[in-house]
Amino acid sequence: MAQVARPGAGGRTPRDGDAVAGAGIIEAARNAFAQKGFHGTTTRDIAAAAGMSPAAVYVHHPSKESLLFQISRHGHQAILDAVRAAVVEHDTPTAQLRALVWTFAYRHAAHHTSARVVYYEAAALTAEHREVVDGLRDEIGEVMHDVLAAGQGSGEFRLDDIELIARSIAGMGVDVARWYEDGGPWTPEQIAEHQAEAALRMVVA
């Protein structure tokens, strides 16, 4: 008869404990990479921040690079899911672009620690992992490109170069992660509102 895992302290099963430990390591790695950079962070740094031994880290993750990959993949996938959801909630390209840019900017402010790691430590990924992350980044760009093309087709937008506009808008949002600080003069909502309006001024005659 198969044995059922019994809850331990706090009603957690061993599998629950593994999940909590794994999440703690991810959070510790994210903060360490953001503060020290990927190459400046050691496995010992991550283990200490997570309250574990260095050997315990390898139980959950085979390498420091695999931690970076998991953080990067999750970060890009979360942004992709969010902008897709923002677009489908609206019917016109103008409303879709506003919602997309608002969501994109908001996430880069509200999750600025993760975003810094995702964008500024990508060079440390292996070629295989970088391909996966770049694929997700391309999909995010395609969502933006499709909305801009729809707006141009409907006559709502006047664009000389869709690709240039798309990259300019995306770059504006990505850069938020570089300079945003918790407790600063602007909230994520204020930044998102400002960038959404700025994007519309870029495309609407």
Rank of each mutant, 00 (worst) to 15 (best):
I46D: 11
P93Q: 10
A9F: 14
E121L: 05
D161N: 15
R73G: 02
K64G: 09
D175N: 12
V57E: 08
G151Q: 01
E156N: 01
F157I: 01
A23M: 01
S168E: 09
V174S: 09
Q152K: 10
M202C: 13
A47V: 08
A82E: 11
A109E: 00
P188Q: 08
I46S: 14
E65Y: 07
P93E: 10
L148V: 03
W186L: 15
I162F: 04
D161I: 03
V118T: 13
A50E: 13
T113Y: 03
R137F: 05
V133Y: 06
S114D: 15
G10W: 15
D138L: 12
L97P: 02
G155P: 12
A127C: 03
R130D: 08
A123V: 06
R130Y: 12
D175Q: 02
H108F: 11
V4T: 15
V176S: 04
G153D: 07
G10Y: 14
P93N: 07
A29V: 08
A110R: 03
S63R: 07
A78C: 03
D16R: 08
P93L: 10
W179G: 00
A2C: 00
A86F: 06
V87F: 08
L164C: 09
L200P: 07
E65T: 14
V59D: 12
F104V: 01
A150S: 13
A166L: 05
S114T: 14
V174C: 03
E128S: 13
D138A: 15
A122C: 02
